[in-house]
């Protein structure tokens, strides 16, 4: 499978996720193109975060197949048949994906620099010096070049989240997932994190999926917005269209409610 083919970077094919009797995602079909930036919005419980978690393999899927960069991730070909992926296959495909979490999930016992060098050294086997150079570069990029030796507890929420972005980028992913990355931050700290994501979008050829409540940011940054409702994509389209003239009644309701809250 060559990188030049124009297969989508991510493809959800009839993906279903259930928690017991509750169907969180129902026959989801979604394609994300190479370098595309997709914002996922919707009311809580609509399954939007689950989409990212399944793609990061944090949740098993109950039906369908997830494709990444032209090959199945949740499954693998064996004797001409699709079988559930073995751990080795999962790890290989997963290496193309990075994720930033709502609550940062930084390693509290490591400095900002060590947070960013740990996986490149243990997983990719980079020598310390190279890993540290790469990490320092990334911390500079997120504006924290002077905080390398700080522990997460010594950083503000916005700074921690920027370290988390640098940590994910240090693994050189092709796809970045952002799961409500500003929801745990005080309002005045959101800007610095969004600014970093903006920069990433303009300077790198990353495919991005983000679950967000920041409608303004979604409108300005995303190529496409998907509105989730009750485990399905209720409406999707270019942000301009979806935000100014939503066709679906649910979308209208949701956007009205969000705007009222501002």
């Amino acid at each position: 499978m060559s990188a030049t083919t124009n297969h989508p970077m991510v493809r959800f094919e009839g993906v279903t996720k259930r928690y017991g009797a509750l169907t969180v995602l129902d026959d989801l079909n979604l394609e994300v193109g190479r370098g595309e930036k997709v914002a996922i919005i919707g009311p809580s419980g609509s399954g939007k975060t689950t989409v990212l978690r399944m793609l990061m393999t944090l949740e098993r899927i109950d039906g369908g197949v997830i494709w990444v960069d032209g090959e199945p991730m949740t499954h693998m070909q064996k004797n001409g048949q699709m079988v559930p992926a073995e751990p080795k296959h999962l790890r290989r495909v997963r290496s193309k994906i990075g994720m930033v979490f709502q609550h940062f999930n930084l390693f509290p016992h490591m400095t900002a620099l060590a947070n960013c060098t740990e996986a490149p050294m243990t997983v990719l086997g980079l020598p310390r010096r190279e890993a540290e150079e790469r990490a320092a570069e990334l911390l500079n990029m997120v504006g924290l070049g002077d905080k390398k030796g700080h522990y997460p507890a010594q950083l503000s929420g916005g700074q921690q989240q920027r370290v988390a972005i640098a940590r994910a980028l240090a693994m050189r992913p092709k796809i970045m997932l952002f799961d409500e990355v500003t929801s745990a931050l005080d309002p005045e700290l959101c800007g610095e994190v969004l600014q970093v994501i903006r920069k990433l979008g303009s300077e790198h050829d990353l495919t991005m999926l983000m679950v967000t409540h920041q409608m303004g940011f979604a409108k300005e940054f995303a190529d496409r917005v998907c509105f989730f409702y009750q485990g399905k994509i209720c409406e999707q389209g270019e942000p301009k269209e979806l935000f100014t003239a939503p066709k679906n009644e649910r979308t209208q309701q949701f956007l009205r409610a969000v705007l009222e809250a501002v």
Partner: peptide
């Protein structure tokens, strides 16, 4: 140890032992 720590290691593609 908070579940988010495990999730971060998965997102960084670490093995369970690592």
């Amino acid at each position: 140890v908070h579940r988010g720590q495990w999730e971060a290691t998965t997102a960084l593609n670490m093995t369970r032992w690592q």
